[in-house]
Computed example of a mutant assay.
Amino acid sequence: MTEQSIKFEINNDTLIEAINSLKNLIATKVVTQNMNQLVFTTRELADQLKTHEARVSMWRQCGAIKGIKKGKEYIFSRNEVDHFLEEYAGYDLSNEAKVKFAVHEVFLRNNKKESSTTKSVNSLRI
Rank of each mutant, 00 (worst) to 15 (best):
A89C: 08
H83A: 14
E80P: 02
K119T: 15
N110P: 04
N111W: 01
T117G: 14
V106C: 01
K100P: 04
A97H: 08
S116P: 05
E86Y: 13
D82Y: 13
A97W: 09
A89F: 06
R78D: 10
N110Q: 06
S115G: 14
A102R: 01
Y88E: 04
N110R: 01
F101I: 04
S115I: 14
N111C: 02
L108S: 05
A97G: 06
G90F: 05
N111S: 02
E105S: 08
V81M: 14
G90H: 11
L85V: 07
R109E: 02
D92L: 06
F107A: 02
T117H: 11
Y88D: 00
F107N: 00
E96Y: 06
L93G: 06
T117K: 10
L85R: 11
D92H: 08
D82C: 12
V103D: 04
T117V: 14
S116I: 13
V103C: 03
V106I: 03
E87I: 00
E105Q: 10
S115Y: 11
H104W: 07
R109M: 01
I75D: 07
D82L: 12
N110C: 01
S94K: 12
K100N: 09
N110M: 00
Y88T: 03
S116C: 08
V99F: 04
K112T: 03
F76E: 15
S94D: 08
A102M: 05
T117P: 02
F76V: 08
A89R: 15
K98D: 08
D82G: 12
K119G: 12
R109I: 01
R78Q: 12
F76P: 04
A102K: 03
R78F: 12
F76H: 12
L108T: 00
E80I: 04
V103I: 02
A97P: 07
E105L: 08
V99W: 07
V99Q: 01
A89N: 10
T117Y: 07
I75Y: 09
G90D: 05
F84A: 02
H104N: 14
N110Y: 01
V121T: 12
F76W: 11
V81E: 10
Y88R: 05
N95F: 15
S77P: 07
S77A: 12
F84Q: 03
G90K: 15
E80H: 14
E105Y: 05
H104V: 02
K112A: 14
R109H: 05
H104Y: 11
E114G: 08
N111D: 02
E86F: 13
E80F: 11
R78C: 12
K100E: 05
S120N: 09
N95H: 12
K113T: 02
R109Y: 03
F101S: 09
E86D: 13
H104G: 03
K100R: 08
G90E: 05
V81N: 12
D92A: 06
D92Q: 06
G90V: 02
N95D: 15
S77T: 14
L93T: 02
N79S: 14
R78M: 10
N79A: 14
F101T: 05
E96P: 10
N79D: 12
I75A: 05
N111F: 01
V106R: 01
E114L: 04
F101M: 06
K112N: 11
S77L: 11
H83R: 14
Y88V: 00
A102L: 07
S94T: 06
V99N: 03
Y91V: 00
I75P: 13
E87G: 02
V81D: 10
